[in-house]
């Protein structure tokens, strides 16, 4: 899943995939805007066939948290 996350995020920021880790903060480390983050989550929905609850997005700050959240949706 980390590789998929990397390839999605590289469409929004000019960064090498290997510099993206589970600990990377979406805004501070990767420089994503709040709308970039929404788009990334939209792509995750399509990629993994899940439905993201917008109310829970505010608790997602890092790549690891986004992965854990996507996994929890996949059940």
């Amino acid at each position: 899943m980390l590789d998929k996350m990397r390839s999605i995020i590289c469409n929004y920021v000019d960064i090498s995939p290997e510099d993206i880790t589970e600990d990377s903060n979406l805004t501070d480390d990767l420089g994503l805007s709040s709308y970039d983050i929404m788009c990334v989550l939209g792509e995750l929905e399509e990629e993994f066939g899940v439905i993201v609850d917008e109310a829970e997005i505010v608790d997602i700050h890092t790549i690891g948290e986004a992965m854990t959240y996507s996994k929890s949706l996949q059940g």
């Binding site: 805007s33 709308y35 970039d36 788009c39």
Partner: peptide
């Protein structure tokens, strides 16, 4: 502008 900017990034990546 933020939306225009993000969509532009997506187009550039594609």
């Amino acid at each position: 502008p933020m939306i225009a900017k993000t969509i532009y990034k997506q187009i550039k990546a594609a």
